[in-house]
């Protein structure tokens, strides 16, 4: 019984983790049809921002939840201005340019910080779940992921900017004709997506440690989760995270962590084949 509980909790944190690392990518893809292949490096920079802030005496929570998203959000605004803006509507070219950005960021960060693992220990200690000890911090990821998704939903549904952004997403020409500054909407959306990635990087830093190449471990998983989710970014990413996260954790439990990852990716490929427009191409079509 307690084993089932422990595995259940594992699955829950696995889902939360997948959701956290995918959300920034999902917002940018869902709103702008831009695949940001530097997403993994945005996570990495979020992690480094948090570490540096902690080393300079900033409170650990402030470092993870405020400093990391702020810095990466600013970087996102810069990248949008310099690179993404020139390539709107050219999906493949944006993918290539952001891949270049990803390599460049890996290179520059390796030159500055070296190829060593940095990190800080997770706060909150451990808790006893029916005889199994687990890190309380990894459980904290579940409410954190819920708050992140909830916040995105609230902004899109309940604010004026959200309304304009959704309008721009549905029909950019029409929105522009009605006087919406679509360029500004795109810029803010990209920066917000980057900030979410930075936040994700800050949140996973205590668990995974931070290396310049850490992004490559996450980008494919985030990418395939968003693609499996399909057009509706929140419902899609949520349902894909639940499905893939649960499958991944179960497979990890039954075999090894590496094979668990392999099973997760294989299931995602089969899902894309069966539902070529993603989960939300078939189900929850009217969801956000």
């Amino acid at each position: 019984m307690s084993l089932a509980l422990a595995v259940g909790l594992q699955a829950l944190t696995g889902v939360a983790m997948l959701l956290i690392i995918s959300l920034g990518l999902a917002v940018i893809f869902g709103m702008m049809r831009v695949i940001n292949l530097a997403h993994g490096e945005f996570l990495m920079l979020g992690g480094y921002s948090a570490i540096l802030a902690v080393r300079h005496g900033v409170n650990i929570w402030v470092a993870m939840l405020v400093v990391a998203p702020l810095i990466v959000g600013l970087l996102g605004a810069l990248v949008e201005r310099l690179v993404i803006r020139r390539l709107y509507g050219r999906m493949v070219d944006t993918m290539l340019a952001t891949w270049g950005l990803s390599l460049a960021l890996i290179g520059v960060v390796s030159m500055i910080f070296g190829n060593t693992v940095g990190g800080f220990s997770a706060p909150l200690g451990s808790v006893d779940v029916g005889g199994f000890y687990t890190s309380a911090y990894s459980l904290f990821l579940v409410p954190a992921a819920s708050v992140m998704v909830g916040a995105v939903w609230l902004v899109l549904r309940r604010t004026k900017f959200g309304l304009l952004a959704r309008g721009t997403m549905q029909n950019p020409e029409m929105a522009s004709a009605l006087g919406v500054a679509t360029e500004r909407v795109y810029a803010v959306t990209f920066a917000a997506g980057a900030a979410l990635s930075g936040l994700a990087g800050g949140l996973i830093a205590p668990l995974s440690g931070v290396v310049p190449t850490m992004g490559t471990a996450y980008i494919a998983k985030a990418f395939i989760t968003v693609i499996t989710g399909g057009a509706a970014m929140l419902a899609g990413t949520l349902s894909a995270s639940v499905l893939l996260g649960a499958v991944g954790v179960l497979a990890t439990f039954l075999t090894t962590p590496v094979l668990g990852e392999v099973v997760l990716l294989a299931v995602a490929i089969i899902l894309v084949r069966l539902l070529p427009h993603g989960i939300t191409g078939r189900f929850f079509r009217r969801a956000l």
């Binding site: 390539l87 290539l96 340019a97 270049g100 990803s102 460049a104 290179g107 390796s110 030159m111």
Partner: peptide, 16 residues
Amino acid sequence: INPNAILGVILMLAVL
């Protein structure tokens, strides 16, 4: 110098 930095910048410039 990390070669990745150079390669990445080249790819970005090539696309742009």
